[in-house]
Design a protein around this nucleic acid. Structure first.
Lengths: 344, 344
DNA sequence: CTTTAGCACTCATTTGATAGGAGTGCTAAT
DNA sequence: ATTAGCACTCCTATCAAATGAGTGCTAAAG
């Protein structure tokens, strides 16, 4: 589908104008705004051609043109120019991320905040998960009679700990033994493997500590799950209402319904390209409910490993250039925040 | 403001009918639905009286009546009958809370879920906070050279721990000494006191560990803050759209704007009565933006201490009986979940 | 004195017709 | 190949009239 230069210019004009105004774009307005050196009539002819190829469509006979899904795709792939953040905006991002002490939850909040400041789309991200992290060592440290601390140390340096209650007849020696067995079984495995290889193997080995081990394994599972679980965070629900497409409540409801089901968002995040910003337009999001939406996603990493994905969701009439820039920039900052200094 | 019985019946009818239909209530519809044994004309007379007292109003001349803020207040205080959850609903709640392993974050999620299942209002709660918890003991446990675990134990039995990185020239003895000093300073104080009494006192005492102590205090602060911080959680944003008042996007925007500012919600939660379910109607929520909303709140506790508040926010035409029942029930279940078994 | 039937009156809402206007497609001229 | 011109389409805004729900008032009945 090679378009001649002028058709490209017209398509670009239509897409950009429509992104800006949310209204169908007329031949006259293009002639006025963009200096193509031709009259509206000529543009109309080009438009008729573009419509025939299926890159734009007419909401009704006497209306201007609107890009079709394929039109947006063509625009994103071939015509769109990269934008940059303004220095002001970069500063804003730095300010948001410039918290002194870094707790994971805070970083995620910062991310949501930063993106909602920069765009009027829905933001969502799958929280860092470390299912491929390798378990280095488990420690069970008694704090006082009947109370101990379960410590899980990963190769990456992450340390997780949780308190456990013990029946008071468990001795320090018992704990040492349990620790030994747990390490014997789990050391060197990834978190994913541990949760999958039935924890019951260990259970049998330590059958004489029945009650205690039950409890410990339970806690261990919680700790591991916390690492492995790909949490989903969402923000910008109020910002999205600024988009004119959502001045109709029915549309708002649709959207809310869509994002309410976590699996929808997970699916969008799932097949993000690890090497570049991914754009999904309309039906490219494989969901019947999402045919009117577009999503822009990119992965972020911690210490070189991909640990999660950040996404924007908005109407198909999304400012793709802007969205891509923001997503790219924020995932980079986020990766830095997660990798550079230690995050607790 | 003593109303005779029939006026009360009429007011009750108007409120309940309006809560149900969201429409102005006419004299005829009351005569039809409620068997007051009088004609619409009589009811009209009563209505005129009620309007004069300011308990109901007329949106326009040829419309039915709508309860005023004071009308709702009268209804809630004097007329409303308590409702009960159905066995089905109770079962639903139990099912939602019946997770085996209890992580705090999960419990909060369950709470939000349960309430959104049971009502179509906004739910929000201030997360458990323990600023009055007393610090029992601090432990610093070395995990490996350059890495240690900071453990904070509270009188209530809650244990918090975080990993800390140390410069590798710190010995176990150093850590023991630091631990000693920290305990000396902080033992027996509430978390709130600790964060307020300048941590710098300790800093001076331990000046020779300068770098290390800096870091440890930083982490300690994070741990304490996590305890003290009254996190705010919000849910039901999509459910609220079911309310007919929000079929106008402008209304939705208003509402979103209101809930976007955390302090608004915090303020509502703040002055919840610790002994009973609190109802705030319209302007009783001291916010110009919230004159059309009502809120129902109740506190919940953990181990006998009040640790947070749960709230519902909806249009003034809220089903108060229902909302109060749900809030009361859920805070009870939540308190049980937080108190009964250990929560990790 | 209270209740109520009856009726006039009000006013939001719906309906339908009309005018206006934006935008296109086509044709013929450049 | 381009474009001016014009007919045509169809959305949208506007206005008047019709509709109807609901009230307030009055006068009669209980």
């Amino acid at each position: 589908m090679a378009l001649d230069l002028r058709k490209q210019q017209v398509l670009e004009a239509i897409v950009e104008c429509h992104i800006e105004t949310a209204e169908p774009v007329s031949s006259r307005s293009i002639a006025r705004k963009y200096n193509l050196g031709v009259s509206p009539a000529t543009i109309r002819n080009e438009m008729a051609d573009l419509e025939e190829i299926g890159l734009i469509r007419q909401p009704h006979t006497s209306a201007g043109r609107v890009p079709s899904q394929r039109g947006y795709r063509y625009y994103v792939d071939k015509l769109m120019k990269k934008t940059e953040l303004t220095p002001r905006e970069e500063k804003l991002i730095r300010a948001i991320f410039a918290k002194k002490v870094k707790v994971l939850a805070d970083i995620i909040q910062c991310t949501l905040k930063a993106v909602t400041e920069l765009t009027d789309y829905l933001v969502f991200l799958s929280g860092p998960y470390f299912e491929n992290d390798v378990l280095k060592k488990i420690k069970i440290i008694q704090l006082m009679p009947g109370k101990a601390l379960l410590v899980v140390m990963a190769e990456t340096g992450w340390v997780h700990s949780k308190a456990i209650d013990l029946s008071s007849d468990i001795t320090v020696d018992d704990l040492a033994y349990i620790e030994l067995v747990l390490n014997h079984y789990f050391q060197g495995l990834t978190f994913k493997q541990i949760t999958r290889t039935v924890l019951k193997d260990v259970y049998n080995e330590l059958i004489k500590y029945r009650k205690t081990i039950n409890h410990i394994l339970e806690i261990l599972e919680v700790v591991l799950q916390e690492e492995v679980k790909e949490n989903l965070y969402l923000g910008g629900t109020n910002k999205i209402l600024k988009q004119p497409e959502y001045s109709d409540v029915e549309e708002v409801r649709n959207l809310m319904n869509f994002i309410e089901r976590e699996e929808n968002l997970r699916m969008i995040l799932q097949d993000a390209d690890p090497y570049r910003v991914t754009v999904k337009i309309g039906e490219e999001i494989k969901s019947e409910q999402a045919t009117k939406y577009s999503a822009v996603t990119a992965v972020y990493n911690a210490g070189g490993n991909i640990v999660g994905t950040l996404g924007l969701l908005g109407p198909m009439r999304m400012d793709y250039a802007r969205a891509m820039t923001v997503v790219e920039h924020i995932t980079r900052v986020l990766s830095e925040a997660l990798s550079g200094e230690k995050v607790y």
